[in-house]
Design a protein around this nucleic acid. Structure first.
Length: 166
DNA sequence: GCGACAG
DNA sequence: ATCTTGTCGC
């Protein structure tokens, strides 16, 4: 895939905050993908001893969910884990993997939050801007906001509220 | 000052 | 994230 990022990655946390402020207006927070033929999933694993991050991608056909392509890309870790700045730690490796991806997914699922972020610029938003593709943030726990635990059924949902509402 | 805090 | 010990449910 073509990766177009509009800022450097070798930045300080303070600079990262300014980049997020700049990104905020470019994000399209909602949308719909009509008939995806290919969907991609991405996650990262670490070797802290070697200071390495492993970005893994899988492309699936949809709705059959057959594996079409996989990519693993290893790079050096250059940024610490700071809540709210996750993308500056993980996105460089993930985007390196996406550069090697031959298929062109219609939608991407990323580990971590997207719009549900203190500055509405979580890693899903960041990756979406760099790839110019729809991305669904799929985090396993809360970063910000208040919610009632949803039910266990498939499709169960709950609204996430900020200090004002919505 | 204290607690919260994606991965 | 990753690791390790202890508990719970099937």
């Amino acid at each position: 895939m073509k990766v177009r990022c509009f800022h450097p990655w070798n930045v300080t946390p303070q600079e990262a905050l300014m980049i997020q402020a700049h990104m905020r207006d470019a994000v399209i927070p909602r949308g719909r993908v009509s008939r995806p033929a290919l969907i991609a999933g991405a996650d990262a694993a670490f070797d802290l001893e070697k200071n390495q991050i492993y970005a893994a991608l899988v492309v699936l056909s949809f709705p059959a969910l057959e594996i079409v392509e996989t990519v693993v890309h290893r790079t050096r870790l250059r940024f610490p884990y700071i809540p709210g700045l996750l993308s500056f730690r993980e996105a460089p490796a993930l985007l390196g993997a996406f550069e090697r991806l031959r298929h062109d997914p219609d939608v991407i699922v990323i580990d971590g939050h997207g719009h549900s972020h203190p500055r509405q610029t979580g890693i899903a938003c960041h990756i979406g801007l760099c790839l110019d593709r729809p991305v669904i943030g799929c985090a396993k726990s809360r970063l910000i906001g208040e919610f009632r635990e949803p039910g266990q059924d498939r499709g169960a949902r709950a609204k996430l509220y900020n200090e004002h509402g919505a």
